[in-house]
């Protein structure tokens, strides 16, 4: 009985995890095919091309990734959670500066949200996001002009983001992501020192076997270090195609409905 309880606990934990994964996996997002992802098919062609060039210009000027998305349904989730999960799945914004913004429109459920990445929370604040939604977006949506609402919303977001250049350049590195573990580095530093010492001992004594052993193990360490570096480095993506830069969001921004 006593012996089986940790096992049972482990099984229960696994089950809970599997269930929560399933709940998360339950949300499906359209693929990030470009800067405008119109999965609900509500944006007209002229607006689409105009938005795309606007957003591209914004990114090449400031590295900010602003993406416009429409989805047919929230899949039973509230828009705040849905937008946050979608933002994270798409990894909008650069990895080090988290400077992404997502404008999400759900026409059928009459909901809209501006989700702001960590790094831009100080520039595109909740209050400003709210003002943009209530003044630039919602009035047009109410008249059924989805393309018009989206494009005036994007105009305003870009105006806020590039309004005071000196200000936002100074503010950029708000929350760098730091994933490398100091414990790993310490262990490897210690091992490297050890090998330097071993090599030195081997050279002093001139022992053939010893130096062989040291260089073998040294090679292994080298291999591991190389592997680590390769694992930690994420490619920036090719030119031409668009992909998220690795940024994240903590729920900044505002939501609205019409």
């Amino acid at each position: 009985m006593l012996k089986s309880s940790p096992l049972r606990l482990a099984a229960a934990t696994l089950l809970v995890l599997a269930l929560s994964m399933a709940a998360l996996a339950g949300l499906t997002f359209p693929p990030l095919t470009g800067r405008v992802v119109d999965a609900a098919h509500v944006i007209n062609a002229t607006t689409m091309t105009r938005l795309d060039s606007q957003l591209q210009a914004l990114e090449s000027k400031s590295s900010i990734q602003l993406v416009v998305a429409t989805v047919p349904s929230l899949q039973g989730q509230d828009i705040d959670t849905f937008a946050n999960e979608m933002f994270r799945a798409w990894k909008l914004g650069q990895k080090t500066t988290n400077n992404g913004v997502l404008l999400l429109v759900v026409p059928k459920e009459h909901q809209v949200r501006i989700e702001v990445g960590y790094g831009l929370e100080g520039t595109l604040t909740d209050v400003l996001s709210n003002i943009i939604i209530t003044h630039a977006i919602v009035p047009r949506f109410k008249q059924g002009d989805l393309s018009g609402g989206i494009s005036s919303g994007v105009d305003d977001i870009i105006a806020v983001l590039s309004g005071d250049k000196t200000n936002w350049v100074a503010r950029q590195p708000v929350r760098p992501d730091n994933r490398s573990s100091p414990v790993n580095l310490l262990v490897f530093g210690f091992l490297l020192l050890l090998f330097m010492f071993m090599n030195w001992r081997a050279q002093v004594s001139g022992g053939r076997r010893a130096s062989m052993g040291a260089s073998f193990a040294g090679g292994m360490i080298g291999g591991m270090l190389g592997g680590m570096e390769r694992g930690g480095f994420s490619s920036g993506g090719d030119f031409g195609s668009f992909s998220g830069g690795g940024g994240s969001s903590g729920g900044g921004g505002a939501s609205g409905s019409w």
Binding site: T13, S20, D80, D126, S249, G253
Partner: peptide, 27 residues
Amino acid sequence: QSQLEGTENRISVARRDYIRAVRDYNL
């Protein structure tokens, strides 16, 4: 009002992240 709304949302995101992190750790 909108700051409060935004903060409530950040709270729920932070709680979700914490729950996930704790699950990973306990697992």
